[in-house]
Structures are given as C-alpha cells and as structure tokens.
Design a protein around this nucleic acid. Structure first.
Length: 424
RNA sequence: GGAGACGUGGCCGAGUGGUUGAAGGCGCUCCCCUGCUAAGGGAGUAUACCUCAAAAGGGUAUCGAGGGUUCGAAUCCCUUCGUCUCCGCCA
C-alpha cells in the first residue's frame, strides 16, 4: 500500500516508479481522489463539532428541566443530522475509492532495480558451480523420477493435472530435503522455526499483497478462507496490527509448509513434470526489520538461500530482477536459478525480496523508535529457502547417473537413513 | 453441531444514555527526596485523520469490528469476528 502523502508531495517520482512497472501515470488521479476525500472529511468534522456543541446545550436544558428550550434546540438538529448523513456517506465512498486505487498499485522498485519488461532484462549478479558435463545422455527429471517412483498418472486420477505422487525413497527424498533445509536455516542461519496455519482469512492475504488483484491465483475454501500460496502469508502477518518495540528486530522466521497455487494464468506452461504444481513444499524465510536494516537483510537472506544449493552441490546463478519481472509487493528481488540439465537451462528455485514498508502498511505493522514517541512502519522481506519440489527436480537431473540411479548429496544422507544412492 | 458467558488504554479493572480518551491500580518515563538498597512525593504516559507552509495550536474519530436507535451511546438494539464454559462429535 502506498502512502498518499508521499504521492501528494512527490507525484513525479511516483509516476516514474509506476512507469518502470509498465503503468500509466497515476498520481494526478490519486491526488484528485484524495482532495475529494479530505474535503469531505473536513466538512463532516465541522458538522460533528457543531453537533457536539449543540448536544451539550440540549443536555443542559434537559438537566435544568427547561422543556421549551429543549424542544426548540432538538428541532434545530434535524437539518444538521441529515446533512451529516450525506457527508458521512461521501467520506465513506471517497475513502473506499481512494483505497481501492491505492491497493491495486504495485510497490515502487528500488533505484538500483534494472529497467526492463520481463526475465530477459534481469541482471546476473553472480554464478556458482559449473554445469556438469555428462558422459551419457542426461534425462529430464520426469524420466529419471519415473524409474524411481514419481507418478503423475495416479496423481491425476486422484486430483487432476499438476499433482504428483512420490513413492519410496523419492517420497523420502522430498521429506529429507524439507528437513535438511529447515534445519540449516534454523541451526546455521538463526531463523526461528514457526508452525503456521495453511488456511488464512482475507486480511492476511491482503496484507502480503496477493489480494485484491491476484485472487485468481489462489485456492479458496468453501467457508471463505484461502489456502496459503506460500508461508510468506502467515509468517509475515504474524506482526500485523501491532506497535512493536524496536529492539525486537530483525526478526527471522522460517516454516516448512505446503503451498497451494491455482496457476490460473499458466495454462500450457510447464505442463511436464514437477516444476509447476498446484501443491508443493517450501521452506520459507521471512525477516521483519526496521527500515535501516532491510537492505542488508536482503543480501543476508539471499546468502542463506544460496547456502542450501551449495550444500546440495547444485550449480546456480543469482539474478537481480528487472522492474517488470518483480512481484507486486517487491521493492527489489533476487532470484536464485538452479541449473537444470534436463531442460538445459537455469530455472527459478528461490526468490528473495524486500518489500520495504509496502506490506507493513497493508498490515498496519509498526514499531516504536527507541522507546520514544516516534512510530514508523516496519520493513518485511521474504524468500524461499528453498522450494522443495524444484530442489527435488534439480537433484534428480544434476545427480543422475548412467545406470538410472541418483546420487544423494552428502549433506542429505543423514536425512535419508544413510542411503547414498536411490536405485531404480 | 447444541446451550450459555464475555470482549474497555501496555496490563489489571471501574463504568447501563449527557464535557468519559475514559475512575482506580499496576507497569513505564522524567523530576524531587533518601549515603546504597528498599520505601516515599510530584509530573507525564494511546492511535489515526483533518486543519496549519512548518512548529505551536485547534478539531474529529476510536471502549473487538460494522450497522441501527437517540438531540446525545463504552453504556440500548442488530449483525459479525474473537475468547471462554458446559454438552455432543472427533485427529
């Protein structure tokens, strides 16, 4: 959510930011809506002041037992009252319209975010590991996994497209990955483990920015709740509607959860394999910081996500997303892309973003500076550390062997009951 | 699912129609006093919005949320969310 006062003060800056997002200039319209709102509020408050004064007089007359004066004064209130009703309605609609407009606009990109429209304009920041040279024909994960217990047909019979069933050591590998990642973030990187609800209400999803614009991407329950598309939603909303003490921060939280996405806009994309599922596991990282900490925290968080790939011996690169490719709430985003031999390309496996105060405003999550009087909005960051399903894909493809088996990276073996290889 | 109770400031807790943003207590901050500690005295201690070039100042709203009754609502009515108790069911 944007601060209308900032827009009022620096409309040109705001419109430049929106232009980088590929949007038309917005400031003029928003300022006009705000002016209308403020005028209505002022008028209403004047009317309320008058009402309060008159009510007091009426009260005095009543107490004195001055029936005549009481009736005369009461009669005069009728006009004021209907005027107030009109003004109240005007304020309500003015606020609603302004908020609707504000809530639908994406966050402003940070200054250093590259210009660009899509992934082709993203900027490579660094690269780790060498894509492996295979001395046999490398399969993609569907073929490799198919021999090890990955079954899309059974899943389709149960649930439809974009679901998978994992069996045997493959199921265990998924569990091992989740446990390994979670333990790493908790024990080595100082994140606090949190267990969260998978079903959340409107306000939570609005807070992180999926609502109102992206309702189509989410699953909704019969009783009006939403299945979380990422643990970012419950984790971030943990600090909502509260004024926190400054010395709490940074707060670092992590959770291993299932994530549910309708993939409404992805018809026909990534239909093969595990890349794009309606349901997948993910270890999420969320940091809540004061405004001065968030820049550094994003670098730190990205490193925490990268560490998972290094320990899993998976080559990857770090991309700084261009303005057009960033998510709605993000101010700056680093994507981690892991090398996928089966597709001969890098694929996104983590996305680490700082949202600045954008989500905090929507959630009304604030802190008190240094125990003093000043209050400000917090900053929120989120990142995957990592997506378990895609990590599984990367393992199958990168660590496959000529005989159809898959080597289990050293770091994962304690979680695999000592299995070093998954055999067909 | 059935029956009932309750939601007041950081916390506890008064308050059933008229200067109540809200008594009292605790906590916290500052000051005074005390050799230290303990005790004591005094002052202060919500948020948002509007107005103002800004500060000062002024105004409005907020007693879970939304709506209604009323000249006037923390107080009455309705809806909703949440909490608790009992019964039923259940991993």
């Amino acid at each position: 959510m944007h601060d209308i006062r900032l827009i009022r003060e620096k409309p040109a800056v705001f419109d430049i930011a929106m232009a980088r997002r590929g949007l038309e200039p917005q400031a003029q319209r928003l300022i006009a809506l705000d002016a209308r709102r403020r005028q209505a509020v002022s008028r209403l408050q004047e009317a309320e002041t008058e009402r309060n004064a008159r009510s007091r007089e009426i009260g005095k007359a009543k107490v004195r037992g001055d029936e005549g004066r009481f009736k005369a004064l009461s009669a005069k209130m009728a006009a004021l009252k209907s005027e107030m009703e009109r003004l109240t309605e005007e304020v309500r609609t003015a606020e609603e319209v302004l908020n609707q407009h504000l809530a639908a606009l994406p966050n402003c990109p940070a200054d250093d975010v590259p210009k660009g429209e899509d992934e082709n304009d993203n900027e490579e920041i660094r690269c780790w590991g060498e894509p492996r040279e295979f001395d046999f024909r490398a399969d993609d994960h569907v073929a490799v996994g198919g021999r090890l217990g990955l079954d899309f047909e059974r899943a389709a019979a149960l649930s439809g497209a974009r679901f998978a069933v994992l069996q045997g050591l493959l199921a265990r590998l998924e569990r091992a990955l989740g446990q390994f990642m979670l333990d790493l973030q908790i024990n080595k990187h100082g994140y606090r483990e949190i267990s969260v609800p998978y079903l959340v209400r409107d306000e939570a999803v609005f807070g992180t920015g999926q609502l109102p614009k992206f309702a189509d991407d989410l699953f909704r329950t019969g009783d009006g709740r939403w299945l979380i598309p990422t643990a970012e939603v419950p984790l971030t909303n943990l600090v909502r509607d509260f004024i926190h003490a400054e010395d709490n921060f940074p707060v670092r939280m992590t959770a291993l959860t299932a994530c549910f996405r309708s993939e409404a806009g992805a018809a026909g994309r990534d239909t093969r394999g595990l890349i794009r599922m309606h349901q997948f596991q993910k270890v999420e990282l969320v940091s809540i910081t004061t405004p001065d900490q968030s820049e550094e925290e994003l670098e730190r968080m990205t490193r925490c996500a990268e560490d998972v790939l290094r320990r899993l011996e998976l080559p990857y690169r770090v991309m700084k997303l261009c303005a057009g490719d960033m998510g709605f709430s993000a101010r700056r985003t680093y994507d981690l892309e892991v090398w996928m031999p089966g597709q001969n390309t890098y694929r996104e496996i983590s996305s680490c973003s700082t949202c600045g105060d954008f989500q905090a405003r929507r959630m009304n999550a604030r802190y008190r500076k240094g125990g003093g009087k000043a209050i400000d909005f917090l900053h929120t960051l989120n990142g995957s550390g990592l997506a378990v399903g895609r990590a599984l894909v990367a393992i199958l493809e990168n660590h496959q062997q000529m005989d159809g088996s898959v080597r289990v990276p050293e770091a994962l073996r304690p979680y695999m009951g000592g299995h070093g290889v998954i055999q067909p």
